[in-house]
Amino acid sequence: MKLVLILLLSLCLLLVSASSGDRSPAFQSCLLKCDYRTCKSLSSTWSPSLALRLTRWTCTDDCKYTCMHEITSRALSSRNGEEVQQYYGKWPFWRLGGAQEPASVVFSLANLYMHLRGIRAVRRSVPEDHPLKTVYLWWGWVNVNAWIWSAVFHTRDLPWTEKMDYFSAAVAIMYGLYSTVVRFTHIYPPPPSSLTLSSRQPSSHWKKNLYRLWSTLCTLIIVAHITYLTSLPRFDYAYNITFNLVLGLSHNFLWLIFSLPASITSLFALKRYPHAPISYRPTFASKAAWFVVLTTLATTLELFDFAPWWRIIDAHSLWHAATVPIVGMWYDFLVQDSRDEGWRYGGWRDELKD
């Protein structure tokens, strides 16, 4: 979940930062001339390709793109060491098939693919009667949706694609925390009546009510979050960052506790598995900590904000690329965790693993 959180933060910071390129006299002069000659002149011959029409490029948008790259090319060829500038909060990228940031689009789709693979692994390898199988499948689809909108947003940065990207990311972060709390507190959704439930005892009435309460609370929080942001005249980036930070850090904190030695987790009264002693810690528990560490390291790529190499690859797209293998690693962990003996009612062998 932290993956989608940092995506959200970086996009927000880029958008709210000032851009010297689009305010420069050279750019404004180029834009005025291009807009008049290409878009407003009676002799205009602007005819967008099918890709540009499908991605909703206007004539003025195309002029902005053309002027941006003309000025960038002059800066790169200058012997005076002129710096490449940002325009409208973004670095100048070569577009591909109408996509504004093709590398980020490709890596977003790669993350989407890894989630689809993970969903297939959960379906195939997690036991049918496991209490969290449905939760994990929904978690996968929520993230698939988030990465779809990430790809759409990087294809075309428009007000509605921006909001869909942000809101989908927020839902994914919220669902990550929701599923983690369900996992750690052992309050599970009601099972299908067709299952034999060999992996769990009948849920107590208070746990069922607690599950419904937690589900309702998370739903109300995310609905209120989206409603608040859509009701404002201007998008509240600072609030949006704070909201997702709180959720994401809470999620990571819980999984860090999970990975700690049993002597420490017992202080938090954390029972990792419903049918194993509180002191039981599987050998693979440390993988949860590695996930948090690796996502944090991948996030540091965002700190090295630089003009894109060959006008294609920037720090943000590299961060997207770095998360691809981490997604696969996390699904492997979830499958391994779900197959542990500690989930089986009456099937746990008296072995302590620390």
Rank of each mutant, 00 (worst) to 15 (best):
W94K: 15
D305Y: 12
S199Q: 14
K133N: 02
A18K: 15
G97E: 02
R53M: 10
R344Q: 11
F235W: 11
P25I: 09
T299N: 04
I173L: 06
P159N: 06
F27I: 10
A322M: 12
A169Q: 06
W91S: 03
N240Q: 12
G21S: 06
S250Y: 03
I173R: 04
A18E: 15
L9V: 15
E70R: 13
S231H: 06
Y65I: 06
G21I: 08
W309S: 13
T72W: 04
P277F: 00
V292A: 08
P274R: 01
L50T: 09
Y331S: 10
L5E: 15
H186S: 05
F258C: 08
T58A: 09
T196E: 15
N244P: 00
A307H: 07
Q100A: 12
D62T: 13
W330F: 11
L220P: 03
E302G: 13
V223T: 07
V122W: 04
Y280E: 04
S194P: 01
R200T: 14
Y136R: 12
D157K: 09
H69G: 05
W46C: 11
F93S: 01
K90N: 15
V126W: 00
A121I: 00
I71T: 10
K33Y: 09
L256P: 01
H186Y: 10
K133W: 02
I187G: 03
I6Q: 12
A75K: 01
W147D: 05
Y228L: 13
T45C: 09
G140L: 10
L197N: 15
L232A: 10
L294V: 01
V335S: 05
I278H: 00
T295A: 08
L8W: 09
I313S: 02
A322L: 05
P102N: 13
R339D: 07
A75W: 03
D314F: 05
R23H: 14
F235Q: 05
G81V: 02
R117V: 10
T227S: 14
L256G: 05
N145Q: 08
A288K: 02
L267T: 11
T265P: 03
